[in-house]
Write a protein that binds this DNA or RNA. Structure first.
Lengths: 175, 175
DNA sequence: GCTAAATCTCTTAGTAACTAAGATATATAT
DNA sequence: ATATATATCTTAGTTACTAAGAGATTTAGC
């Protein structure tokens, strides 16, 4: 096998391995939501709030791709559960900031313990230098995925008849 | 900063970076479903079918965590869209295998092109040896996530009053 | 072999969470 | 000031989900 061909094979194997592990990551998230007894979108918003801190309802809609109406429902449920608080912005009173209540971090975070333990075990098999490489990849990968998401979203703005549409939604069973 | 403390900080940074990039990965998947015009679960099943090949309806339910009734709906939509075919097992006629129709790979796969391109660009910055490290990590990480998912699912079998429940579901807005 | 239990998918009825459109409240621009 | 824009919420209708159970087929016990 030639040098470049070996690399091509490596890249393909890597792509599949990443795809597989990220698919399993999605399933872990679904399981967390399930065990915690909250909707998937609710957990996703908690995750965004954890990473971004206090954000507006509109920002949640933007990031998750949900409508603002759907976000109202998400925040209603999370607020009623005592996980987040609505905080009106005094500078611009149209805005509503959503903030995680302190104890919620722990209440939700406990369900990530199995994942953290598994990851600590995996990381244990790597040297500091190797971990730094993984960190570099994680950061670059994040930026790559972010760019890819933006590129894909661009397709939504292209005229629908000009892009291939699978037309799967709004299908009802045959009588 | 001491040697071990440096590693602890590195691990924490790594965890956050992974969490961030995997969250963005979820969003990419949602965007694909959106652009393709199919439900999230439908795409998830297509992904499983791509990775595992021909699988039974029951296996899809097991892997996705959906009920078999929900899978019937997923497969109905995918079949009507011409992306999969139901194939009754002749050896055990209760079983229904779901198989991706050949052209569907391309029809769905096109939406992963932006991601592949972004990843190729990222991978370009790594030597073969480094890529092999990433591959090793991806494989070990997959196993770790798989184990973590199983561990978390174990909580579902523990008596609900014995485990911390967020009790968020089935909440309705106040009148 | 024949009956009972188990297994696999599908059906049905009801529910939760979503979208689309527009209402409301506040902010910005002319 | 008035008009336009922005941010969230509300309402009505839709979609995809669950729970429970009905077929259809297979496996186990006698």
């Amino acid at each position: 096998m030639s040098r470049t061909k070996a690399r091509a094979a490596l890249l393909q194997e890597l792509e599949e391995a990443m795809r597989r592990s990220s698919a399993q990551g999605v399933l872990y998230g679904q399981t967390v939501a399930n065990v915690a007894g909250i909707a998937n979108s609710d957990l996703e918003c908690m995750d965004i709030l954890y990473l971004e801190g206090r954000v507006t309802a509109g920002r949640l809609a933007e990031v998750t791709g949900l409508t603002t109406g759907a976000i109202t429902g998400v925040v209603d449920r999370l607020e009623k559960a005592g996980l987040v608080r609505r905080e009106r912005d005094d500078a611009d009173r149209r805005k509503v900031f959503i903030a995680v209540v302190p104890e919620a971090i722990e209440r939700v975070g406990q369900f990530y313990v199995p994942m953290q333990q598994a990851m600590e075990k995996v990381f244990g098999g790597y040297s500091d230098q190797e971990l730094r490489l993984l960190l570099r990849f994680a950061n670059e990968g994040y930026k790559g995925v972010l760019a890819a998401t933006a590129a894909l979203k661009g397709l939504l703005d292209t005229p629908p008849e000009k892009r291939p549409d699978l037309k799967l939604k709004k299908l009802r069973r045959q009588p």
